[in-house]
Design a protein around this nucleic acid. Structure first.
Lengths: 155, 155
DNA sequence: TTACATGCAAACTCTTTGCATATTA
DNA sequence: TAATATGCAAAGAGTTTGCATGTAA
C-alpha cells in the first residue's frame, strides 16, 4: 500500500529512535533503502530495492541492502513476504494488517482484509489450545483480464 | 497425514501411470522416495527424505531426490510447502485439502480444515473478479505445552 | 540397443559474512 | 579517536544442471 509523505517522515523518526536505542546510526544508505520501501508501496525483493536505490546512490552495495532490511525487520518496521518463488519480498509494516492475492499470470500482488477470516483463524487455533503469533494467507489467482500482461514466467 | 497401505499402493499405480504417459520409468529410487513421502505422513525436506531413503538404498543421490520430487509435484501427486525457514517441504497430495498450523517453538506442524474459511476466501476473490487457483494459509503459533521440546532455533 | 535414470560434482540463485576502508558521533 | 557502516568479494545454504556411466524396456 502506498503511504503518505507525513507517514514516511514519522516512520523515519521511528527508525532513527530504534537505531539510537541500539547505539546505531541513520546513514544515507539506510534512509534511502527504508524510504524506497515506504514510498514504493509494493512488495519488492532485495534485488528490486538495490536497483531502485542505486538510482539515488550509485555505489550502494547488495550487502548494505540486505543488512538494512534485516535491521528493519528486526525492529518491526518492515515485514517479509514469500510468495513461493524463492525470493523474499519486503513491505512496510505501517498500516493495517492485510493478506495477499497474487496473480499467477502477471505476478501482481493485491491486498485484502477480511475480519471474519481473521476471527475464524483465531477460533481454530484456540480450539486446539494454541495462540496465534502471526499468520500468512495468500490466495493465488488468475486475473484473466485484458490488462494482465502475463509476461513473466508463471509461478 | 499418515496414509493406509492400500492407498500407498493406489498412489504408486497412479505414479506409474503418469510416468508411462510420459515415456518414463518407475525405478527403485523413484518408488522409494515416493513411498517415503506417503508413509511418513510428515512435512519432510529434501534433506530429510534423502537421509531416510538412504537407509533403504545406500547410494541414492541428492539430485535423484530433487528430480523425483519435482516430477511428483509436476504430476500433482505431491505438494510443496514452505514455512518460512527457506526450506521446501513435501507432502502427499492424496487426502483432503487442509491448512497448516506451525509451532514457532518446536516447529511441529499440525493440520486443520475449516470450510467456512475456504468459503470466505472464494467470496473475497470472486468479489474482486478473480478465480482462486490455489491458496496457502499458515498459522504460526506457540503451543506453550509441557510436551513442546522447543529445542530447535525458533523460526 | 536405444532411451531414460543415476550419481557425482560443479553451477546456480539468493542471502550472509569477513575484512579492509570509510564515515560518523 | 573510537565505534559503527560500507562495499566488495568470498562463503553459505538450498537447489538445479551437465556429463559420463548405469539400467531398463
Amino acid at each position: 500500500m502506498a503511504i503518505s509523505e507525513s507517514l514516511v517522515k514519522k516512520q523515519l523518526v521511528r527508525f532513527q529512535d530504534e537505531l539510537f536505542d541500539r547505539g546505531l546510526r541513520l546513514t544515507k544508505q539506510r534512509e534511502s533503502i527504508f524510504c524506497m520501501v515506504l514510498r514504493s508501496g509494493d512488495h519488492l525483493s532485495a534485488e528490486d530495492l538495490h536497483r531502485k536505490v542505486r538510482d539515488e546512490n550509485r555505489s550502494i552495495g547488495f550487502a548494505t541492502v540486505y543488512r538494512t532490511l534485516r535491521l528493519l525487520v528486526d525492529v518491526n518496521l518492515v515485514e517479509v513476504r514469500q510468495f513461493g518463488d524463492g525470493v523474499q519480498r519486503y513491505e512496510s509494516a505501517a498500516g493495517d494488517h492485510h493478506d495477499h492475492m497474487v496473480c499467477l499470470d502477471c505476478r501482481k500482488v493485491f491486498e485484502f482484509e477480511n475480519d471474519e477470516i481473521e476471527r475464524l483463524q483465531h477460533q481454530v487455533a484456540e480450539g486446539q489450545g494454541f495462540e496465534i503469533a502471526r499468520h500468512r494467507l495468500d490466495l493465488y489467482v488468475r486475473c484473466r483480464r485484458a490488462n494482465c500482461p502475463n509476461i513473466r514466467k508463471p509461478l
